[in-house]
Amino acid sequence: MSDKPRALMPAWMDANRLAIVKGELDKAGVELVTAQFRTEEELLAVAKDVDGIYENPVHITRHVMESLPRLRAICAMGIGYDRFDVPAATELGVVVINLPKVFHREVASHAIALILANVRKLRTLDIATREGARAGTGPKRSVDAIPYHWLYGETLGLVSFGNIAREVARMAKAFELNVIAYDPYVPAEVAAQHGVTLVPDLDTLFRESDFISVHTPLSPETKHMIGERQFRLMKPTSIFVNTARGGVVDEAALVRALREGWIASAGLDVTEVEPVRGDNPLIDLENVILTPHVAAASEMDRRERPRWLGIEMGRVLTGKWPINGLVNKKVKPRFPLTND
């Protein structure tokens, strides 16, 4: 076995992107190991001699980390890190890495696209145009198919104010939107630098906004943080967008809000269970636009994601702090790290 640090990647990534990860790890002096595994038992069997683990189908629990004394780092495949027990990792000295500045603009533009698609009723108009063409009658111009929601000068509320939400705020200014946000971890002066006003609580955000865009990570603290109470506070003309994680929202409450007219419509790139199942009531609602968790996707993503997966893991496994993606900032690493 090589004396190099070793990073474990599940063997599902395509060859081109895997080669990019490997190339960056090679530069750092880290060996890439790939393996097939689906259960915790299988993971522990293949990971006993590795120093870093990339996100995979198995949740990285306290038990997993305690069973792997060589483990220095775990790395998410994107921005979300809900498959990792972050408090346990911090306690055990395992560095948690994510990729916060790789495709934040793509996710932000997807959120804006979902807002615009709902405002302009693109789904309804597309269906009406196609059905009218097939019937030879022209598009059916029903009241439900005609856009009515004014955009300029209205209020966009952001749930959380991290990198993606800040990009959304920047883009929203082009539409002359007033942007407010709720994030208890961000100082008001930081938000103000981006032209955004922080509100004191989630209820105020939902009550005052014409559009809500969710950007908070999923954690035990944020599970179902948005539910019936918040939806009932929204205006009946308001639009709800989620490009973060489905588990942040009580989906049953959202379905009821859409069915009963508490809110006008929604745009969702994420759901509680993915992929969306055939029995999910959201798929039968005409006032919902659904996309299959692809907000981050682009040619840039396909190139830059694997590059930064290699760079950040390579740094930590060779004694350096990650450049952008340190999740557990209070961690005292099992092995000392420097900023060089």
Rank of each mutant, 00 (worst) to 15 (best):
E286F: 11
R315L: 02
V331G: 06
L285I: 06
T318L: 07
E260K: 11
E304I: 00
E274K: 12
S265G: 10
N328I: 07
W321G: 04
T318H: 11
R277Q: 13
W308K: 00
R307G: 01
T291N: 06
E272M: 13
V255P: 01
L317G: 07
S265N: 09
E274W: 12
G261T: 05
V255R: 01
W308L: 00
K320P: 01
W321F: 12
R303G: 08
R315W: 05
D301N: 09
V294L: 07
A297C: 14
N280M: 03
L268G: 05
D269N: 11
T271H: 13
G314R: 02
M300G: 15
R302T: 08
F335P: 02
A295S: 14
E312F: 00
D279P: 15
A264K: 05
V331Y: 09
V288C: 13
L309G: 02
A257P: 00
H293W: 09
P281I: 08
P306R: 05
V288L: 14
E260Y: 08
W262F: 13
I289T: 03
K320R: 15
R302L: 13
L317H: 12
N287K: 03
D279I: 10
S265V: 02
K330R: 15
I289N: 01
A257G: 02
P275H: 03
D284F: 08
D279N: 13
S265E: 01
R334D: 09
E260F: 09
W262N: 03
R302G: 13
K329H: 15
L290N: 06
K329F: 07
E299C: 12
A295R: 03
V255G: 01
K332H: 11
M313P: 05
G261A: 15
L309D: 01
I283D: 10
G310C: 04
K332Y: 05
L282P: 09
R256T: 13
V270N: 03
E304S: 04
L290H: 12
V331C: 07
D269M: 07
I283K: 13
P292N: 06
